[in-house]
């Protein structure tokens, strides 16, 4: 196993299989080439990247699944406990008996807190999206690696020699990163849903899969995985240094919400005092992602209506498109040397 092994003579060259014939009209086909996506996927699967990220996805899914399952069981247990003691106004002393309208409110509150199917649905959504927070960070790092690996390992040269139309390369990278993200989502979701359904059914609860509040967060979780992969590719193109791009993307993801709260809190306190200000916090990618996957719109102020999930989805999609477009334009112009 050394280079001094007998070398094939150059004269063997003409015996090589002839190259496949040029397909007709090859230059006029659309820029997305399946074979380039296959090449990009192969780049990931022939290095340790895919299983290292997969391992972290599994760990983060497993740990949060455990916590979320325990929380769901605790909530359901508390609701069952409460249900055995409905409010009874008959024993109250006549002078202290709540009025009819007060009784009505208490009963409604009781009904809400013991609505087992609703609690199951809410907790199921939470359990089925276990590992999302760290998972999305891993996916953004994956997107970064898909691009920066080419520069760290100088493979950009052979890549762009094989495919001088760079838009096609970036498109293939975007699609490959999205496919991988969807794959990680599928694995993570399969584990969470499988384990979650087992847990709920063992305790005698049926999971209302058809309820929008159950399947929508799961579907939006998929969208979030795919879009963060796109954002990662965009980051990788903007910041070519691997470590720099990884830290920036992960950092922005992690501190996105707290720093947005700080900035918007400042604006709310000193500039615009209306709670409407909080609605614009959805412009921050991390917040948009959170809004998108939430069952209830997150509220940051008492008078705020909350931003609906689909605005979060739109905002994150817009960022994804923007990152992909800027990334493509930059890559097309960049000198590879």
């Amino acid at each position: 196993m050394s280079t001094s092994a007998p070398m094939s003579s150059v004269s063997s060259h003409p015996t090589l299989a002839p190259a496949p014939a040029e397909p007709a009209g090859a230059s006029s086909v659309p820029p997305l080439r399946p074979r380039l996506v296959r090449a990009e996927l192969r780049k990931i699967f022939t290095t340790s990247t895919w299983w290292v990220i997969g391992l972290f996805v599994l760990i983060s899914t497993g740990l949060t699944l455990l916590v979320n399952t325990l929380e769901a069981n605790q909530r359901l247990g508390a609701a069952e406990q409460l249900r055995r003691h409905p409010p009874d106004f008959s024993n109250a002393p006549p002078g202290q008996r709540p009025s009819a309208s007060e009784q009505q409110a208490i009963l409604e509150d009781f009904a809400r807190r013991t609505d087992i199917p609703a609690i199951v649905a809410e907790q199921a959504a939470n359990v089925f999206t276990s590992g999302q927070f760290l998972g999305l960070m891993l996916i953004v790092i994956l997107g970064v690696l898909v691009v920066t690996n080419e520069f760290t390992h100088q493979t950009a040269t052979p890549t762009f020699l094989a495919t001088p139309r760079r838009t096609r390369v970036i498109l293939a990278k975007l699609v490959a990163a999205m496919v991988l993200a969807a794959g990680y989502w599928a694995v993570s979701t399969a584990i969470s849903v499988g384990s979650g359904v087992l847990n709920f059914s063992l305790r005698g609860y049926d999971v209302p899969f058809t309820a929008m509040q159950v399947w929508r967060p799961v579907a939006m979780n998929l969208l979030a995985y795919v879009l963060w992969a796109v954002l990662g590719v965009g980051f990788g193109v903007l910041i070519r240094n691997q470590l720099g791009a990884t830290l920036t993307a992960a950092g922005l993801y992690l501190i996105g919400l707290p720093s947005a709260l700080l900035v918007f809190g400042f604006i709310h306190a000193y500039i615009v005092h209306s709670d409407v200000v909080w609605n614009f916090i959805v412009a921050v990618p991390g917040v948009a992602s959170m809004v998108m996957v939430s069952v209830e719109p997150p509220r940051f102020g008492p008078e705020q209506t909350g931003v609906p999930w689909w605005i979060g989805a739109l905002v994150l999609t817009a960022y994804g498109v923007l990152a992909g477009t800027i990334g493509t334009l930059i890559t097309r112009r960049r000198d590879i040397s």
Partner: peptide
């Protein structure tokens, strides 16, 4: 260039 490949591939 002589090093145009991923080190781990």
């Amino acid at each position: 260039e002589a090093s145009s490949a991923h080190k781990g591939r």
